[in-house]
Computed example of a mutant assay.
Amino acid sequence: MSNTTEINTPLYFSINEVAQILGVVPATIRNWEKQGYFVAQRSANSYRIYSLDDIELLKKIKQYSIDDRMGSKAIKSLLASQVATPPTLSGFEAAGTSNQPDRKLIGSKWRQYRDNQKLTLEDVARQVGISISYLSKIENGQANISYNILERLASFYGKSVLHFFEPEEAQRHLIEHDTGEPIQAGIPGVTLKSLISQKEHVLFPVMFYVEPGAGAPETHQHNGEEFIYVVQGQFRVTLNHTEVYNMKAGDAMYFKSSDFHSWTNPGKKVSQVLWVHCPVER
């Protein structure tokens, strides 16, 4: 594909580039797919391709499987509480649609960042080690760009690649009533809404809306700490297979994420539950 033709298409990386980002070998990523943790997108010539959001999901899979040494069943259960199982990366559909930012949009962000720092094309190109014309094409969405170049640009601006491409609206301090971003749970009868919109944070507060009989009955565990507060309805949490806690509105609960846990709504009405996860254990 020519670098002189405008490429207003989503930005994707090869499996080799993603392996470099994650610090694993490509065979590891392929093995994760074989185990059913995700379904990779494919390009027109059937090569695996990955977006920035895909990389975020794969980073979680790496944490669960390599860092936390969780078993396959536990990993699938945990992923099921966050995305559809098995997740198709970026929600890629047969028609080839995607909600990923395209190269033109990404290029405009690079240009805005450079302008904010009052830098010229020559200033940045010289420091990054690319030609002025190539940088100009990148900023105008008219050039193919590899992860290596993205990393060099992000490093020049003092940012990581993934951090750089997060949306500006992710800096909201106030989440007004019913404006939290929906989270794809992949669990029938369960709706989630994020209660935080920051680029850097430790706590993950989420509002759960659980239909009667719905939940995550398969036990799972991971790193961190959990806090639950039942806003309305009933909620049942089972710890370590035998400890059953039946909660009602106004009840609160705390436990280590390393405890095996599962949950469900045993009542006849929708339960609303504030769930706060801190992935770092004190």
Rank of each mutant, 00 (worst) to 15 (best):
E6M: 08
F38T: 03
A252Y: 06
Q63P: 01
P205Y: 04
Y147V: 02
N140S: 11
V39W: 03
Y147N: 02
E176Q: 13
T264S: 11
V231L: 11
N16D: 14
Q234A: 05
G91I: 14
M247S: 09
E166C: 03
N116L: 01
G91S: 12
N148V: 00
S2I: 06
L11E: 13
Q127L: 00
T120S: 15
Y245D: 00
L78V: 02
F208T: 00
S43K: 03
G186M: 13
S65V: 12
E218R: 10
Q127S: 12
F164M: 13
V83S: 12
H220W: 02
N140C: 03
N223T: 04
I15D: 05
K34R: 09
Q171D: 15
K137S: 08
S131M: 07
L119I: 05
I75M: 09
E168A: 14
K34M: 00
V39K: 15
H173G: 00
V124I: 09
D102Y: 07
V237F: 02
N16F: 02
E243C: 00
L195M: 14
L22N: 03
G189N: 10
M253Q: 11
N3G: 07
F235G: 09
L119A: 09
G267P: 10
I75V: 14
V24K: 10
V230Q: 04
E139R: 01
W110M: 02
V161W: 10
N144S: 13
E168R: 08
K104E: 09
I15W: 07
G141H: 08
T264P: 01
Q41W: 00
L239N: 10
I149W: 07
P26S: 01
K60M: 13
V210R: 11
R152C: 03
L174S: 03
L57V: 15
E6Y: 03
G213I: 08
R111D: 03
Q112E: 12
V190T: 07
F13G: 04
N16M: 01
Y254M: 12
I149H: 07
E168T: 11
A40C: 10
A27C: 00
E33I: 00
L58H: 01
A170E: 05
L203F: 12
I55N: 10
L57M: 14
E176D: 06
G189F: 01
R282I: 09
D123Y: 09
F164V: 05
S46R: 11
K118A: 14
V280K: 08
P101I: 14
E139M: 04
I75T: 08
R69A: 04
K60D: 13
G250V: 09
Q100K: 09
R236K: 15
M1P: 12
T238W: 04
P205S: 04
